[in-house]
């Protein structure tokens, strides 16, 4: 179990994010993706964020990654680096796999030397063989996903933010990558894992936050939170169908 420290790595207080669904500035159509979210993230823990589709989980990850800033409330980061387990960041289709590994890692904040040190591991993990020196344009979708995953897997931020999918690619690689990620989550790596799947959260996280309708309803021990979530979904069968079309996203 996690040893609860006094000081969190990230503190989120009353965070609200409002999207404008229309482009027009003069005739806005505001939508509150997050209304009032509170959570604390401690070093070494795996925090699960659970909630139905379309309750603002991805938005929350973007707030934690400092990609967008909240409209109300605040996020305090006490110096930890964060990165989303984002697959295929900044890839150039005309460059080789190797070059794209470098570009991705530089974008995540690593120096060329640090990338070079891990290059062999990354290439080996991706199982791309001689394709690694071919332009990305000739890759299948699965191969690109494998490359993207391998970069993110070996380039560790202090806090890893994961949106739903742990593994990628064809069946075999999906099993391998999922297993690798599960081990990473169970290690000392600090993780925020977002999912609508109660099973995944229960399995991998030690603490959880349940977000409903943009509001954090409950935070604490994973079983307590997930039980409450499951009870809610069961008692609100209609709630399941009220899924909002996803905000344009990756």
């Amino acid at each position: 179990m996690r040893l609860k420290q006094d000081n969190p790595l990230i503190r989120v207080r009353d965070v609200s994010v409002i999207y404008n669904r229309r482009r027009s500035v003069f005739n806005p159509d505001p939508f509150e993706a997050l209304k009032k979210v509170n959570l604390d993230l401690y070093a070494g823990e795996s925090l699960g964020v659970i909630g139905r589709n379309g309750v603002g989980k991805t938005t929350l990850l973007r707030v934690l990654a400092n990609i967008i800033s909240p409209d109300k409330g605040f996020v305090q980061n006490f110096g930890a680096t964060t990165a989303m387990l984002s697959l295929q960041v900044g890839f150039n289709p005309h460059a080789t796999g190797r070059t794209n590994i470098l570009l991705s890692a530089l974008l995540l904040g690593y120096a060329r030397k640090e990338v070079a040190e891990r290059m062999d591991e990354i290439v080996a993990f991706s199982e791309l063989g001689e394709f690694i020196d071919q332009p990305l344009a000739g890759y299948s979708i699965g191969m690109r996903a494998r490359l993207g995953f391998s970069v993110c897997y070996f380039m560790n931020p202090d806090i890893l933010l994961i949106d739903e999918a742990l593994g990628v690619g064809d069946l075999e690689f999906r099993q391998k990558s999922t297993k690798a990620m599960q081990e990473k989550i169970k290690s000392d790596q600090t993780v925020v894992l977002v999912s609508h799947n109660a099973q995944t959260i229960r399995q991998l996280c030690n603490r959880a936050v349940w977000i409903e309708n943009g509001v954090s309803r409950l935070e604490g021990d994973v079983d307590r939170v997930v039980d409450a979530y499951e009870a809610f979904v069961k008692s609100n069968p209609r709630a399941r169908s009220q899924v909002r079309p996803r905000q344009a996203s990756s």
Binding site: S16, G109, R112
Partner: peptide, 21 residues
């Protein structure tokens, strides 16, 4: 809203490296 993220001190370096490559 106030965003209390501490900026990584080497943001400029990160950007410059990335632009170059």
């Amino acid at each position: 809203g106030e965003s209390g993220f501490s900026k990584r001190p080497d943001q400029l370096v990160i950007s410059a490296r990335y632009i170059w490559h």
